[in-house]
Design a protein around this nucleic acid. Structure first.
Lengths: 231, 231
DNA sequence: AGGCCGACTTGATAAATGTCAAGTGAGCGA
DNA sequence: TCGCTCACTTGACATTTATCAAGTCGGCCT
């Protein structure tokens, strides 16, 4: 694997404090692969052969049941996915596909588990990562159960506003996927955007302009225990 | 703390392999308290002073936003809750209240974090526990997003059927709380029970009889990646 | 036993969300 | 530039779910 990729991975909180020898051991079995857009990387219920690291591009985590499908999360560089399945050696709960041309590092789960049981710093980093993932999903559940779809969209827009630090931004994801992520149909998302117009939201294509942040905030009632993804 | 409680805690997977000295250190600062029913134990957004262990009784984890409230999970003996907040030292995402008279052990989070950074076995057990919690919440999200409320109830009943190993069982929870847990109103749960009658479900008070397991299963389409809480 | 309380149920209605089918419009290649 | 494609939008309608207001029923206290 090229040295620069190794450095990207090395800088992830998950690997930053791993013993050098252990990190080398992890990298020895790992390899990097380029994928075109819309390629299935893993399928739910498969055994977790690899821990995946998104180096560039983006990946959609989704799940299906009984002919229905829903988008669970988007993974952007540089971060890992399906850590829980890898360390527990349990089947994937979600499928993953590239959204765009993406570069992915694959680290054999077996190596991850081996180093995990040897390296205290790695174990601690895994705890931090899993706790963070757990809390993110709990927040998502609260979002789904406590809010209407209009409120979910309003808060999503406020999070984007905060992330970009601007009152004007482009959606980073297809509307159909956004709809699925927010737990609604594309048709409903269209209407929801209309429904937020009175609160100062202007939509043209992928471009969003928030003309009345205060009004939107008053409607959305954002809450750090739901909307702050990093705490 | 009485020795028998310590043994209950010691036998939890989370503590089973902790060094004896470290376990003693954890127990030194810990204490056990008895609570009457319907007592608030913790409130979301508070700092995580204690890791809680339910020794007897049961505890409801719930969350509120904008005047609405939803039940997230029920904790039954012997198990812990709010581990993620404790180890990360981040505010609770959920509130907790006793459902019935309950005995709870409280272990100072500070001690948990101290032992965690010293004791490899504890760190590994925490990883296992967090991964399991994470996967449980992911399954719950899939249940919510991919199924109608009728389907959620049908699968809930099948899980109870499996758990008890009998076609006849009592609901272990108030219907109003079950409704909230399943993401619907009590009124709707009532109607949902009616709606499952054609598939061989008989309800009298808290007592459930499944008269046609095959038919119910055909309707519910249970899936281990959603319904198997232990994998 | 009588009667109260609280949880659940039921019915009527409203609101939210999904479905289907027909548009619209931006982007892109010939 | 034309016209195709594909995502998105719109409208009409169906379904699901929530809300509100009476009920019913069992458990429990006196």
């Amino acid at each position: 694997m090229p040295e620069s990729y190794k450095q990207d991975i090395r800088h992830l909180p998950l690997f930053a404090n791993v013993e050098e020898t252990n990190f080398r051991a992890l990298m020895r079995g790992a390899y990097v692969q380029n994928f075109p857009p819309r390629i299935d990387l893993i399928h739910e219920n498969e055994p977790p052969d690899f821990l995946h690291v998104v180096l560039s591009g983006s990946v959609d985590l989704f799940s299906a049941w009984n002919g229905r499908e829903t988008s669970m999360a988007t993974v952007r560089p540089v971060s890992t996915f399906i850590l829980a399945a890898s360390v527990r050696n349990l089947p994937y709960l979600m499928s993953a596909r590239t959204l765009e041309k993406s570069r992915i590092a694959l680290i054999p789960s077996q190596d991850v588990r081996a180093v995990f049981s040897e390296d205290g710093a790695f174990a601690q980093a895994i705890v931090a990562e899993l706790a963070q993932c757990y809390r993110a999903v709990v927040k998502n559940t609260k979002d789904l159960k406590l809010r209407t779809s209009l409120e979910r969209l309003a808060n999503y827009l406020l999070r984007q506003q905060e992330r970009t630090g601007s009152l004007e931004f482009d959606l980073t994801t297809e509307k159909r996927r956004l709809a699925s992520f927010l737990g609604m149909t594309p048709e409903n998302l269209s209407r929801a955007f209309k429904g937020l117009e009175p609160y100062g939201v202007k939509v043209a294509q992928n471009h969003i302009v928030i003309t009345d942040l205060e009004d939107l905030t008053r409607y959305a009632k954002p809450n750090p225990l739901i909307d702050n993804y990093s705490a």
